[in-house]
Amino acid sequence: MEKLMNQLSENILDKFSMDYLRNQVLKNAYGNDDTVIAGLDPRILIAWYLFFGLVPWFVNDLSFLLGSFLLVMITTLLARVAGLVLFLFGLGVFSQTGYLFLVTLLFGGDASAVAPLLILTLKVATISLASVTVFSGLDPDKLSNGLMWYGCPERLSFSISYAYRMLPMLMEEFQNVLLSYRLRGNPPAHDTFSGKVRYLIYQVKIIMESFYPLMLNTAKRSRTTVEALELRGYRYAAVNKTVKKIRLSALKVTYNDLLFLAISVLWVALCLLCSTLF
């Protein structure tokens, strides 16, 4: 328990450095724009995702699930996703089904509970990795263009590219506000167990409080941003169909896209074949 608390209290502000986080997110967003996956057409990838993001939910066949899992694992590797994202993926899978598994055992479940949960885990993992491939592998702008082609609201695709633009700035600002607390603050000593608890509470409180300055500073920024958007024709474009057409005309399906699709289909067909054979 003490060890856990120890780990936790160190995690939040000390080891968990904003700089590292910022770097990982940026890496994930922009550091892999020269991979095979990033070169694909976003529409094809989204369609691909629709299959691997949905179908595994409906299928309980083990060999199909395993096969899909392998495929999305390979695409994830091809997309050169940042380490942090993969870690989060692992954490996510565990928190969704892993803990359920433990609880089931606790409530007197036996081996019969394991098989469905294994299948559930595979499903969750496949779907997560498919989304990791598409959403981390594609650069945000391509992604938002692809979504727009499928008729997603303009506001969403704007939000995606804007978020990627803003994130480094927001993080830096947040970091600086937190640093202000560190430079001027006097955190409780954390040698003893109760000290560690107090230190943890102190840290959480500071994160909360730092949103007060952050909100005001961001409000200042938003105002300039929205004024500039107005000048740069954002609202004009939102209601103009030609703009959408011009923007989407940049999308092009290449042989690589077709090849990617065909290989995926081949792989899925092979898996189906296996499941009928065994």
Binding site: L4, Q7, L8, N11, I12, F16, L21, V25, L84, L88, S95, R155, S159, Y162, A163, M166, L167, L170, M171, F174, I207, F211, L214, M215, T218, A219, S222, R223, T225, V226, L229, R235
Partner: peptide, 24 residues
Amino acid sequence: LMIFVLTMSLYGLATLFTELIPKF
């Protein structure tokens, strides 16, 4: 739009952290 942008940026940033803070 201003309110939208403001809330989106701030809450988005915050949820990014919740993904990263270990659950115990």
